[in-house]
Write a protein that binds this DNA or RNA. Sequence first.
DNA 1: ACGCCTTTGAAGCCC
DNA 2: GGGCTTCAAAGGCGT
Length: 594
Amino acid sequence: MPQLNGGGGDDLGANDELISFKDEGEQEEKISDNSSAERDLADVKSSLVNESETNQNSSSDSEAERRPPPRSETFRDKSRESLEEAAKRQDGGLFKGPPYPGYPFIMIPDLTSPYLPNGSLSPTARTYLQMKWPLLDVQAGSLQSRQALKDARSPSPAHIVSNKVPVVQHPHHVHPLTPLITYSNEHFTPGNPPPHLPADVDPKTGIPRPPHPPDISPYYPLSPGTVGQIPHPLGWLVPQQGQPVYPITTGGFRHPYPTALTVNASMSSFLSSRFPPHMVPPHHSLHTTGIPHPAIVTPTVKQESSQSDVGSLHSSKHQDSKKEEEKKKPHIKKPLNAFMLYMKEMRAKVVAECTLKESAAINQILGRRWHALSREEQAKYYELARKERQLHMQLYPGWSARDNYVGGYGKKKKRKRDKQPGETNDLSAPKKCRARFGLDQQNNWCGPCRRKKKCVRYIQGEGSCISPPSSDGSLLDSPPSSPNMLASPTRDSKPQTEQTQPLSLTLKPDPLAHLSMMPPPSSLVLTESSASKPSALSATNGQNGPLDHPPATLQPSAAPSSSLAQPSTSSLHSRNSLAGTQPQPLSLVTKSLE
DNA sequence: ACGCCTTTGAAGCCC
DNA sequence: GGGCTTCAAAGGCGT
């Protein structure tokens, strides 16, 4: 854990914490001078499109810093040059020692071009698209590419074989538009799987993957001539199982946005004010690039819509018309949050390590690991998530999460289990802590309760042991289950994520059982200081106020300490069982107990 | 075929 | 503004 690191000490940790999760670079700069790592982080962030606000500036990346304001031919030319240059040195030059392994893309300049309207693709944009969207032929006047795009929008493109949501998913392609997000371009021309992925067989489908061209660099083959083979910069985030984050369906292309979602004038002006002209989405329903976004998913049968139209004439049922309307609405999925991104990346690892397949169990592991992640690592994902949200926002300016609510869209059924009084009562009792301590004593609440989740403390109190040992007796995947972690919770702990712990989950019996909650971090007290940091820091930072970056993220950030502090299974003391049983992000709970 | 499980985070709704 | 709910991914499992 950073904050526990020697050198920088708490300050570092504090800063780190702040840095890790704050949204904008301003604060970063203030505190980024503490360590190279932090600088790296800051660099990364600055290099990343400082989207939220930076989008407004439109020249957020490092590239932009070096060149005149984006605009005009100069900008495009330079941009192109830089892109090409980057492409040439992609093997390493571009990402000079990426602060985060597996996060090279962050240095990719100019995120904006992808949003250029299709018809007005500048050379830069094309180059960019080629880089980011290797599978897409963006050659000027390329009939092929246009046809491809056209096909993509076409109701029945050859490659669209299914009407179901995940339609058009060519497993191993990455989304073109989003270097930083998992939008997949799998629906586009077939390509090669990311080099880092097993190129032979699709883990999920078992279908052999297109072999990776030997002549192509396994990593960012970006030379202009080979850009077409560039793997997704976020390859490691790209669904490795062929499941694009934002699957596309034809319906989505034809009616990408609900009427209410189309960019209106106000939005347009807003975007114009926030983004350079080329970034402002045009007033049509299609993605600005003319390329449908994978986030758009049509709920069900699309191709039959026309038929249904005819059918409706006969039936003229209200329901039918209703359904039709619904069908017309594309389902734009929510952008993935940091944890989701993390899960996507790490799931395969966990699966491989523990041979688990149940997502529920895996998610539990991942949840723990997430807490065990260093702030820098988490920051990486928060940043990614932020970018994803911003890109999503740019792609679908009018989209709202509300659109995906059951009421609005009706894809899924509402979960009712939460409401079920009797069932899993104890486990799902959402407000035990609240009931017990009341709102005014939230410090005493367990983390889950703070997060409005199941009250772990209550569970523990019930005597249910949920931190069973792994097959070998150690807490499975409770990353830092060893006390040493406490002693030296330094970065060593971090690898934890990568460190393959002996996840020998051969469990069939009850995988979740030993995966669930970790024992109370007896030494949570340690984390208290860190836990209290945020506030102190925020106070220090003042302007940050409510931490731009996910406040929640900050809290979780403290989690690593707690997780690290996780004592082994033996730590199931009565008291602890009450106090720290959960992967408490907030050590304050412990404190209060103390 | 569909929903649940399970995780965290974001966002929307309700009061 | 707090509290609560839903959704995002994922794949086995239960109904």
